[in-house]
Structure formats: C-alpha cells, structure tokens
C-alpha cells in the first residue's frame, strides 16, 4: 500500500457516501450484479470511512475497485459529483504502484505504427488496407496505460513513448492503448476509424471506446467492465456484468427490450469497435466481430 497522500479528501467523498443512492439505477455494476456493495454510495462509504479513521484501507480499496468509471453516476447526479474519478484516485493511492514494462522496438517502416496489444498480428493487414507500409509495436501492458493513469504519471515512460513514436500516426485497437498514447501527447487513431468493421449489424460502444461517426450507444448499455479494476479485484462480479451487458446487447440487437431479469435471446453477430471490450463480450457468449478480426478476415 502506498499510503493515502494522494487520496481525495474525505469531504469530496462525503456527498456520495451520505447520498440516498440516487444513481444506483444507472450504475452498470449495481444493476447487473444486484449487490448492495456495488451501489455507488456504498462504493464511496468505505474510502470515506477510512479517511475519517473508522474504516480499513483494505475495504476501501475493495469498494473502490467495484467502479468501472463509466461516468453514468456523474451524468445522473444533479450535483455532478465525479465519483468515478475520485474512486480511481482512491485505487491509485491504495494500490501498489504500477510500473510500465520497457517499450519494445518499432518493427518495420511506415508512417503508421500498429500497436498490437494481444496475440493477433494485424500490421500487415492494415498495410494492405491502407495501401502503404505500416510498422508494428507489440505491447503486453497496453503501452503502460495503468502506470500512466497513476498518480505519478510515469514521466520517464512518457518520454520514452514520445521518443519512440513522435511523428508517426499510432494506430491502436483498444481503448487502454489509446489512453496511453493520448496521455503521452501523441497522435493516436483507433483502428475502427481507419478500417471500420463491415456489416450492418447492431453496434455496441463500450463506455471508453471510440465512437464511429454517426453512431450512438444504445441507452441501455454502459460499460462492459473490460480492463477495469473490477476484473482483477472482483472477477465473479465482472463476469456477471459481462453476462448482463451481453444480454442487453442481444436484446438491443433483437430490436426489443425484454425484462431486466429475463433470459437472454440467442447471441447475434455484433461488431464492437474496441478489441479489448469485444473480447470481453465474446467471453460472455456474444458473437463479436471486432475491428482486428474484421481486418484479418479473408475477405478483407
């Protein structure tokens, strides 16, 4: 634990901790899991108690890790309390600091650099799509995104990223790598914008993922939880969230909206513009065609 020096002051959490749960109905984690601990007000209570000397750091961190930072609570709140941002600060303050992995070398030539964040290799396919050479950068930690989001900001890593990628168009296929690129002040573009997945099927936009032009998120859908603290700290609840969001996506795709608790309709082909979220949804049983898979498909 790194101490509480960068925790938000208790006063900032008090309004949410003492709130009569006025945003629980829009919180994707609270709605999907039904767990009272996941009501945003309860997420705020443990850090608030800890800061006032009547709670533990362990519970504070567990509670803060229930948040997926989708921002739905802030959007709902008449006082616009940024609870997600504050709980992220709590997590960073109470977690062991994340350290970025050393950056690899950029392989190949080209104005564009494809950031490959999982086992799929798609730089060549993008080159064919664009009709020009595309370089490749492989990363196992999304370009150190977690460290970059931490309180220290990893300035040396930022400098290394800039030295490696300045002057290039950095193409990413997942929102975490995109966040890292943006945190370093580099020019980033999402693969889904350069090579949108084909097909006219329904579209699911993850809360942090890029939006394709003219597409809006279905109102019923929020964050799928991919890449959030929920996945690592509360894997069972993360799985429940994925399943619920997949069910809602299936409903939306089917053109209807069944009851919140009703059995999901059969999965439908879905294109998701974000590789990491798409994979998360695929784990929940959806037939996801994300932009990398679309790019690598034989017909591309």
């Amino acid at each position: 634990m790194s101490g509480a020096s960068s925790m938000p002051p208790a006063a900032e959490l008090a309004v949410c901790a003492l709130c009569p749960k006025l945003c629980r109905h829009v919180c994707p984690v609270a709605v999907a899991t039904g767990h009272e601990a996941a009501a945003p007000s309860n997420m705020a209570q443990h850090p608030w108690r800890f800061l006032r000397g009547s709670g533990t750091a362990e519970l504070a961190l567990q509670a803060a890790s229930l948040c997926v930072e989708c921002g739905a609570c802030t959007a709902q709140c008449e006082l616009h309390e940024p609870l997600g941002v504050r709980l992220a600060a709590v997590r960073h303050a109470l977690s062991a600091p994340a350290w970025p992995q050393p950056l690899g070398a950029v392989e190949g030539e080209g104005r564009h650099v494809a950031v490959e964040a999982d086992s799929r290799r798609w730089a060549e396919a993008l080159a064919r799509h664009l009709g020009e050479p595309v370089a490749r950068l492989r990363t196992e930690d999304h370009l150190g995104a977690e460290a970059l989001a931490g309180p220290l900001g990893a300035p040396a890593h930022v400098a290394a990223l800039r030295a490696l990628l300045s002057g290039r168009v950095v193409v990413v296929a997942d929102h975490r790598s995109l966040a890292a690129v943006q945190a370093a002040g580099l020019q980033g573009v999402h693969l889904a914008e350069l090579a949108p997945p084909p097909g006219a099927g329904p579209v699911f936009h993850p809360c942090k993922g890029p939006r394709l032009a003219g597409e809006a998120a279905p109102e019923a859908l929020a964050c799928c939880g991919a890449g959030t603290a929920l996945e690592s700290a509360h894997p069972a609840l993360a799985a429940t969230l994925r399943t619920e969001q997949a069910r809602r996506l299936g409903e939306h795709a089917a053109g209807g909206d069944t009851s919140p608790g009703q059995a999901p309709p059969a999965p439908v082909p879905t294109r998701c513009p974000d590789a990491s979220c798409g994979r998360t949804l695929a784990q929940a049983g959806l037939l996801v065609l994300d932009p990398v898979d679309a790019l690598l498909a034989p017909s591309s």
Binding site: L18, H35, A39, Q45, L59
Partner: peptide, 24 residues
C-alpha cells in the same frame, strides 16, 4: 466483509447520523 457491510443500514436517518458519528 464488503458485502456484509453493505447491509448494516438502510436509509433511516438515525443510522446515517450514527455513521457520521463513526459508530459501527
């Protein structure tokens, strides 16, 4: 513990007052 703690109170203001006073 995280789950049990969430069911320690409903929204009875007396229990909110207790919470503000640091009472478990």
């Amino acid at each position: 513990a995280l789950d049990l703690a969430a069911y320690g109170r409903d929204l009875w203001p007396r229990d909110t007052l207790r919470m503000v006073e640091g009472l478990a």
